[in-house]
């Protein structure tokens, strides 16, 4: 049984289509990232998985139950959720806030110390939340989501606004949860925020899944050209520009854009010339470029 199974799930707000017939399954222990621009439908999808809004059509099954049904309430204590933005009550301490949430879940209060250690808030846990910085609040939210070692962890933009070190910490926590067998659903507005530790990525665009697969697979599928930069002495450069006529523009260095599937054959040809090069750089497309390209490719189909 899949942890999350969505079958032609759609949601309309009035006449606006927020999600259009989404099919998506996440197996237990799988870690999937939802990526898309603001308004692509990520939050709507997460809210339907959590049973906060009713789908217009289609079906969602989360851990064996319809999230809008009454018995799903019993499943909720196995789910951890970090909202995109949450302003906790300023006049409570971090510890009081988490005790409140732990009691609602029926989780042990003894485990809270460990959670505070894990998100580096142990020293500050007895201070009022009003004294916390933005990053500390985000970490408190993450600790909140981890209460009771959830089997399903849903994190809405967990790394937005965090510095690189904290972001690494978030991913190491996610990795630990994954090792414990938790299913994880993350949303993010940019692929660059993601980590290679994520199993699969679903790119949402205008309410539809534009691409689904591992980061490596997306890279291959998109087939954006890599850029190859060759540094060489002037006389070698002349040989190069003769050989690859029309392909280069020379500006101290030679730059060429080369489709991913021709990269190896190009390099072999270059080596076959048997000339002395001082340096060579191969720049593969960044995740951000892949993302933009995917969004651009899929867009015309929507009209």
């Amino acid at each position: 049984m899949n942890s999350i199974e969505l079958t032609s799930l759609s949601k309309f707000y009035g006449k606006t289509e927020a999600l259009a017939a989404i099919d998506l399954a996440i197996a237990p222990g799988d870690c999937l990232a939802l990526v898309g621009h603001n308004g692509a439908g990520k939050s709507t999808l997460i809210k339907m998985v959590l049973g906060l809004i009713r789908p217009t059509s289609g079906r969602a099954v989360v851990m064996g139950y319809d999230p809008m049904s009454a018995p799903f309430n019993g499943i909720r204590k196995k789910i951890g959720f970090l909202p995109e933005q949450v302003l906790f009550q300023n006049n409570l301490t971090g510890r009081e806030m988490l005790e409140f949430y732990a009691r609602l879940k029926g989780a042990s209060l003894k485990d809270l110390d460990g959670l505070f250690h894990r998100v580096d808030l142990y020293e500050a846990m007895n201070n009022r939340i009003s004294t916390y910085s933005k990053g500390m609040r985000q970490r408190l939210g993450l600790a909140q989501a981890l209460i009771g070692s959830p089997e399903l962890l849903i994190l809405d933009e967990p790394t937005s606004g965090l510095d690189p070190a904290s972001r690494q910490n978030v991913y190491s926590i996610i990795n630990d949860m994954k090792r414990n067998g938790a299913t994880i659903l993350i949303s993010s507005h940019a692929l660059t925020e993601l980590d290679e530790r994520i199993d699969r990525v679903a790119i949402l665009n205008r309410g539809k899944i534009a691409a689904l697969g591992s980061i490596a697979k997306l890279r291959r599928e998109v087939n954006i050209s890599s850029e190859i930069i060759i540094h060489a002495p002037n006389d070698t450069m002349k040989i190069l520009s003769r050989h690859f006529e029309g392909k280069f523009f020379v500006n101290g260095a030679a730059r060429i854009s080369c489709p991913a599937n021709e990269k190896i054959s190009f390099l072999r040809e270059l080596m076959g010339l048997n000339i002395s090069l001082s340096d060579i750089e191969v720049n593969d497309p960044s995740l951000e470029e892949i993302f933009l390209e995917l969004a651009r490719k899929k867009a015309p189909q929507d009209e």
Partner: peptide, 14 residues
């Protein structure tokens, strides 16, 4: 408006 309601309702409370 503060976002705590959405969070609260993902907990096992009616």
């Amino acid at each position: 408006e503060r976002g705590t309601l959405t969070l609260l309702l993902t907990y096992p409370v009616s």
